[in-house]
């Protein structure tokens, strides 16, 4: 296997960190997404919890979040504090434009059986590396299945006018390319997003969007949509609010030795009243 296939290994931590809590939703929520003036700060809440956006399950691991600034430089996660059920942090917006706060990872996951016992790589709390994979995963084994998995979680905030520099795809894993800018969403307007898997249209990717405040209504009222052949998904919002958006993609066009390719994409978007 070529080593450079899965370059962003530095960010691999979250893959493992959150895969173990895959049953739960993980989210990073900005307090505000559109800001005016100069030198603003945005406070963020992050947690692993199925209740949108009520932090009542686990604080999660968000140390690997990256702040991408409008000028392409990397910013800073400030004042990170991990509570029992919630992580909080701040980001300073010292330049005008759109910031992306994200964590992304790609890697291989293997499962097999040895002497009737289930084995997996990476193991719980373990980080994927090409070396580790080569060392631990046998070339042939009972019920061996190798998955090429990617995961990306991100959210966006803008100081002043929106910009597009931070929205460019990397060509790795499942990614969103906004057709409608993620900080330009309004309740009465349709929004369109394009999803790519390893840089190609993620046809068939399944999107679920849930507006905040599920605690105060009796149903999730989720919006579901499937990406068309261009990878495009159009959404008509269920009113203003912050939305938890999760997209899942799966196919068999994996890089060897994987036989299955999976991508998970998570974002939190704020939709304003018209």
């Amino acid at each position: 296997m070529k080593k450079n296939l899965f370059k962003p290994l530095v960010m691999g931590a979250l893959l493992v960190g959150t895969l173990s809590v895959e049953a739960h939703r993980a989210w990073v929520v900005p307090q505000e997404t559109q800001l005016a003036g100069e030198g603003r700060w945005v406070a963020f809440d992050a947690a692993v919890s199925n209740d949108i956006f009520v932090a009542n399950h686990a604080a999660g691991r968000f140390d690997d979040l990256v702040v991408l600034k409008p000028d392409g430089n990397t910013g800073k996660i400030d004042n990170l504090h991990k509570g029992k059920n919630r992580t909080v942090f701040d980001v300073e917006l010292d330049k005008e434009g759109t910031y992306k706060i994200f964590v992304a990872s790609t890697g291989l996951r293997a499962m097999w059986e040895e002497d009737g016992k289930r084995r997996m790589y990476p193991g719980r709390g373990e980080q994927y590396t090409a070396e580790g994979f080569a060392e631990n995963v046998p070339a042939k084994a009972d019920k061996l299945s190798v998955i090429q998995a990617s995961r990306r979680m991100e959210t966006f905030v803008t100081l002043g006018a929106t910009t597009d520099g931070t929205l460019k795809p990397t060509g790795e894993g499942l990614e969103m390319v906004p057709v409608t800018h993620p900080n330009d969403l309004y309740a009465g307007e349709k929004a369109t997003f394009r999803f790519l898997i390893d840089g190609k249209p993620a046809k068939g990717a399944e999107l679920t969007a849930i507006r905040e405040g599920t605690r105060y209504r009796n149903s999730q009222d989720e919006i579901t949509a499937v990406a068309d052949k261009k990878g495009d998904v159009s959404i008509s919002w269920n009113g203003a609010g912050r939305y938890f958006v999760e997209v899942e993609y799966q196919d068999d066009k994996a890089r060897k030795p994987a036989t299955e390719r999976r991508g998970t994409y998570i974002t939190v978007l704020e939709v304003l009243p018209d």
Binding site: Q34, L35, A36, G37, E38, R40
Partner: peptide, 8 residues
């Protein structure tokens, strides 16, 4: 320019 904060 503190008053600009709420222009949005």
């Amino acid at each position: 320019g503190g008053g600009e904060k709420w222009l949005k």
